[in-house]
């Protein structure tokens, strides 16, 4: 599996370049003119990312979310869900680095092969940073009205956590 992952890029690059050379494309010029598009693209993503990172960081650093966790904890215990999972699940769509840091802490405390770490890993690995992806993709191409994108994204994230809670015990 790891082999396939590390071979994917070299083979992809090789196939693209050899095929283009065979088709008599000026590969070098083509690369340079394509790469030039990178700068305007990065320029247009910067400002929307700045806005979102600023907002998310103020919210996360304020620690207000801890009160929210404390509030929900008894409820989770009531329906037999490990309360430690809550921060991982809520952070997942908000911040990639925060989520990874939480996972890191969990491995440290419970070990990477414990049930709770496994559950957290699956939640972390079965989704992406929804808010970041929306900001990055829509910000870069200048979309102002995102319509129902955020709702569908967050609902799917919630559904994913529920599926993980049901399925991971079966794998363990």
């Amino acid at each position: 599996m790891k082999m396939a992952s590390s071979l994917f890029i070299p083979i992809l690059v090789l196939v693209i370049i050899v095929y283009a050379a065979y088709k008599k494309v000026n590969v070098y010029d083509s690369f340079v003119s394509g790469a030039k598009e990178g700068l305007p693209m990065v320029k247009s993503m910067f400002f929307s990312l700045l806005a979102m990172i600023f907002g998310v960081n103020i919210f996360l650093k304020s620690g207000v979310i801890n009160y929210f966790f404390d509030f929900l904890r008894p409820l989770l215990l009531f329906i037999n869900i490990p309360a430690e999972i809550l921060p991982v699940a809520i952070m997942r769509p908000l911040s990639g680095s925060f989520g990874l840091a939480l996972l890191n802490d969990m491995y440290k405390v419970y070990g990477p092969d414990s049930f709770i770490s496994l559950l957290a890993s699956v939640i972390q690995g079965s989704s992406d940073t929804t808010i970041y992806v929306i900001t990055l993709y829509f910000g870069t191409i200048g979309i102002k009205k995102i319509k129902y994108a955020l709702w569908v994204g967050l609902l799917t994230d919630l559904f994913m956590v529920i599926v993980a809670l049901i399925l991971v015990p079966l794998f363990f």
Binding site: Y19, A20, K23, E37, L50, I53
Partner: peptide, 29 residues
């Protein structure tokens, strides 16, 4: 936050350029 964003964008920039270059080859061929 400004610094964090700039660092992130600086990380993305070379990768985006590189892959856009390679994708352009795939497109033109």
């Amino acid at each position: 936050s400004g610094k964090a964003t700039l660092e992130l964008v600086m990380q993305i920039f070379p990768l985006v350029s590189l892959w856009l270059g390679i994708m352009n080859i795939a497109k033109e061929s």
